[in-house]
Design a binder for these strands. Sequence first.
RNA 1: GGCCCUGUCGUCUAGCGGUACAAGGACGCCACCCUUUCAAGGUGGAGGUCGCGGGUUCGAAUCCCGCCAGGGUCACCA
Length: 481
Amino acid sequence: MSVRVRFAPSPTGRLHIGSARTALFNWLFARHEKGAFVLRIEDTDRERSRKEYLDTILSDLVWLGLTWDEGPYYQSLRLSLYQEFARSLLDSGKAYYCYCSPAELTLKKEKAILEKQPVKYDGTCRMLSLKQKSAFESEGRKPVLRFLCPENVKLSVEDAVRGKVDFSSEVLDDFVIVKSDGFPVYNFACVIDDHDLKISHVLRGEEHLSNTPRQLLLYRAFDWIPPIFGHLSIILDENRKKLSKREGSTFLDEFREAGFLPEALLNFLALLGWAPKENKEKLPLEDMIQRFALNGIIKSPAIFDFKKLEWMNSQYIRELTPEQFTEAVIPFLKKAGFLPEKELKEEKNRILPFISLYQERIKKLKDFPEQARFFFLEEIDLDLSVLKKWDKPELIFLFEELLGKIRNSSFRSEDLEKAVREFADLKGIKAGDLIHPLRYFLTGQENSPGIFDVMVSLGKEKAILRIEKGVLTLKRLMNPA
RNA sequence: GGCCCUGUCGUCUAGCGGUACAAGGACGCCACCCUUUCAAGGUGGAGGUCGCGGGUUCGAAUCCCGCCAGGGUCACCA
């Protein structure tokens, strides 16, 4: 039997990082088994489904590289399929119309909670007479279709990640399968589609584990063989709670905007809840596909470790070629306003050497414009409280003399370094005593890549101008005229 | 509350009854080295009574039972 898995997001929100992991696992499994990865859009909630969410989910999947072999199938376009099967359940007496209004239902539910009774539908509409029905109809009530839950049934799943899980039908009630607007409810559409699309394995989040018995009941009612289920543990935040919006980074687009590389994100996500036999950390996509196995999936929930993700990202960043790294960084520069929307080829070549200085220094692409602003800004501000460290008169003279040497230098990194070091030797001071203020004059920051490389990248004219300005500012600081 | 899932260093995990597991790796943390700063890199270190309590066994992180803790779920949402 060939492996067919599906990822079935609902377009009621952006792609959650946990959903992305679910998609990854399905995708990896499909690739490993040379099966099919199908995409299905569960858009049966007419109130909350939005086109814009659909668009972001699709583009996020493409960005990640988790492309699908089949679909997307839209549930909203397959209504007749669900109606057909709803009809058959109705005809065989396994489902019935229910006219209870939402208001009546919530009333009953609240009462049940007050009386500490289990909250279950009480079956009011199970045996409605034709007369009662038409009375409700003439009231204008639109019925839902409920599944008639059999009593005392033992249900169990052989879960691919958890092993055998038992349920009893006692906890179940006559659940709704078709809403009053004629749209199917999740549990119903899901079963029909998984069967219709010949899905062999359903890998989904653990929050669906408690839906499984209901779905099992449906499979039984249709006399279908259920797929193999595998429930992936939840991803938790630092507080051991389901990763929530409040924590900041929970949606995929946020990671993209922060400058995480898709390969790094995928690698990190794969390790959150799955471990290859050899316990390796860094696994490029191909290795993951090769090693992926259902029995390596971890049952316990995992806490999202942002620091480790950053580390992983830095590992992938340094594997890029300088050209790739530059290309990757450019959108972030544009966004920061440091580069025009239409950058020129020459411009790219000009900044490439400078950008390369940061390849092993940043964790996220977004770090670059933040750390390297001084390069793109025409003017930089110098903070007096920092300059104070160097308010020694002799330093001014030294710098004025050094400036002369720099002006006459070939302006190559090694030559500049040699000039500064020799000058320091000559004057009997430590090279660092010159380098630190120099760095601050040039960048307005107290740390940066190697300062001689920075000077070269800045260009002779600009570099000298900044040093002159720095010395001047320092001078004014000492003699406020 | 009912039902269900889970429980190895701060975090992700290896481990599946016994060959150095008096628990290994990775991230993070600390120290030192390197060094022009910060990173990176190198070296070393701290950190776990394997949730707790009972069994089973010559032997248990590994098997069984109970407890506890955390999480998920109880919609005309998915």
